[in-house]
Design a protein around this nucleic acid. Structure first.
Length: 504
RNA sequence: GCCCCUAUCGUCUAGCGGCCUAGGACGCCACCCUUUCAAGGUGGAGAUCACGGGUUCGAAUCCCGUUGGGGGCACCA
């Protein structure tokens, strides 16, 4: 078709009326993948025509989120005051004169007309149709006002919106995902307002003007836009520009199968980031929501996804956002990170934990580094690292007496065990010892012998020690945890636990 | 109400007329490993391919209908 031989240009057009949404990220990703796979250009355009709801904070959040995920624009808006490319401006608020110009052309050619209906009149029309169980549709009563009269009324200062004439006929969408879709123009709701009475343009109009001006060849977006696509096609035709190809992606759904929303799901990318989801995991997960490799591979990098991406394997039905699966993928990626990389990504979580008082002192890089092999397989989220290792960065533990006594034991047994184990621990743990990891631990050997001679299960003894040293029942491996804690702290905590048990 | 899209295990999906007595993954259960928690390993339960008609020698795969689900119908984006 017309785009054959032309370089592919796709775009994502977020509206800064809310924080960076997971659905926007998914659409952006698919656009980027399509561009990368086909040697095209990926454009970011900010749709901020709704001045009342758009904020610079949201725009910053969106741009920062895109950057973080590696979905930064090849062309278009990349940061607050930064745009790339020569087909801009790429922010709709900076394009108002262009919209007015194009609207004027449509009007001059008779393809659009002034509508003097007031909001009240339209409301009366709408409710009447609603009462008659008819779909909302503009009657077109201003469509036949003679040009001279219309011009006179406008000149007289009468308030008027501009409507685009929807010509009767069947509009065909040749969708790259769904195939041929036919929609009767009759069902589009009548002539379309493209400029409000105050002269500001409306979405369906701006999107087409922008896509035309920016030479977009492929419009890849959510299925929620499918029904509105005929309006866009009619507008493209009226402008006399080649039609882009369309691809409507299945929606991401709430657990109840409705379109994913802030009300029912966590939708802000920033929230996932703050929880410690890796960008690699989010990308991996999102790519597999509605698309598949056709193979059984699941853990894939963006590069790997880029190599395989195609619209043929895009699913047609919506997909529920399964957070559990995201967490699993996240765990897979955490295990794949290099030592240094994981360390760097964990760093901010410790810093934040200090700020909000969850731990008592900053964690040094060497400390985190020593911990890595112990925690790597135990954190589904980066943020999980705090509850798993907080005992190392808290000065004084608040023991829970109940936790100090292993399930099968009496308090007296726990007390006796801690007292008996203390000297062995004192002898076996130094200050600033490195973890032994998988090597045989001499302290463990001695403690096992101690347990055996007393008729205790080694596991119970270890649990009592674990609770005493860390205050928790689920921790990284006990002996290495104690080594990292250091002799003084471990013995102090054991003493504290002994005192507590004596008091019971 | 009207229009459009859609329908394979709870979830994400493979499948594009015979390889399917439907495969994988998440989750779940059991076992193994094991000092806890994880991770890992092994095995298992879990889908009459929404339902009903066709087409065909043969259908999860093609067609029609029904039902269910979703989306869209603004001087919102």
């Amino acid at each position: 078709m017309s785009s054959e031989g032309t370089k592919i240009r796709v775009r994502i057009a977020p509206s800064p009326t809310g924080p960076f949404h997971i659905g926007t990220a998914r659409t952006a990703l698919f656009n980027l993948l399509y561009a990368r796979r086909n040697g095209g250009t990926y454009i970011v355009r900010v749709e901020d025509t709704d001045v009342a709801r758009s904020t610079t904070e949201h725009e910053a959040d969106i741009l920062e989120g895109l950057r973080w995920l590696g979905l930064e624009a090849d062309e278009g808006v990349v940061a607050a005051g930064e745009e790339r490319g020569d087909r801009g401006p790429y922010r709709q608020s900076a394009r108002t004169t262009r919209y007015a110009e194009v609207a004027q052309q449509l009007h001059a050619r008779g393809l659009a007309y002034h509508c003097f209906c007031t909001a009240g009149e339209l409301e009366v029309e709408r409710s009447a149709r609603d009462k008659a169980k008819l779909p909302p549709r503009y009657s077109g009563r201003c469509a036949t006002i003679p040009a001279t009269e219309s011009a006179r009324r406008v000149a007289a200062g009468e308030s008027a919106a501009l409507r685009f004439r929807i010509q009767p006929g069947i509009v065909v969408i040749d969708d790259l995902v769904r195939g041929r879709v036919e929609i009767d123009a009759e069902t589009l709701g009548g002539d379309l307002v493209i400029l409000r009475a105050d002269g500001s343009p409306l979405y369906h109009f701006t999107v087409v003007v922008d896509d035309a001006d920016m030479g977009i060849t492929h419009v890849i977006r959510g299925e929620d836009h499918l029904s509105n696509t005929p309006k866009h096609i009619l507008l493209f035709q009226a402008l006399g520009v080649p039609l882009p190809k369309f691809a409507h992606l299945p929606l991401i759904l709430n657990p109840d199968r409705t379109k994913m929303s802030k009300r029912k799901s966590q939708t802000a990318i920033a929230d996932y980031r703050a929880e410690g989801f890796l960008k690699e995991a989010i990308i991996n997960f999102l790519a597999l929501l509605g698309w598949s490799t056709g193979s059984e591979d699941e853990i894939l990098s963006v590069e790997e996804i880029q190599e395989r991406f195609d619209l043929d394997h895009v699913q047609k039905a919506g997909a529920i956002f399964d957070r559990t699966r995201l967490e699993w993928i996240n765990g897979q990626w955490i295990r794949k990170l290099t030592h240094d990389d994981l360390l760097a990504r964990l760093r901010p979580f410790y810093d934040r934990a200090v700020e909000d008082g969850r731990i008592g002192r900053p964690a040094r890089d060497e400390e985190i580094a020593a911990l890595l092999p112990l925690i790597r397989e135990r954190i589904p989220l980066l943020s999980s690292v705090i509850e798993l290792t907080d005992f190392l960065f808290i000065e004084t533990l608040q023991h829970d007496a109940a936790l100090l006594v292993p399930k099968r034991w009496e308090p007296a047994t726990a007390l006796a065990a801690l007292e008996a184990a203390r000297p062995l621990v004192a002898a076996g743990i130094g200050e600033g010892d490195a973890p032994l990891l998988d090597a045989e631990d001499p302290l463990e050997v001695k403690l096992r012998a101690l347990a055996e001679s007393n008729g205790w299960k080694a596991g119970d003894l270890f649990m009592a020690l674990r609770a005493a040293a860390t205050g928790r029942t689920a921790t990284p491996p006990l002996f290495d945890s104690m080594r990292l804690l250091g002799q003084a702290a471990v013995l102090a905590r054991i003493d504290q636990a002994i005192a507590l048990l004596r008091a019971v």
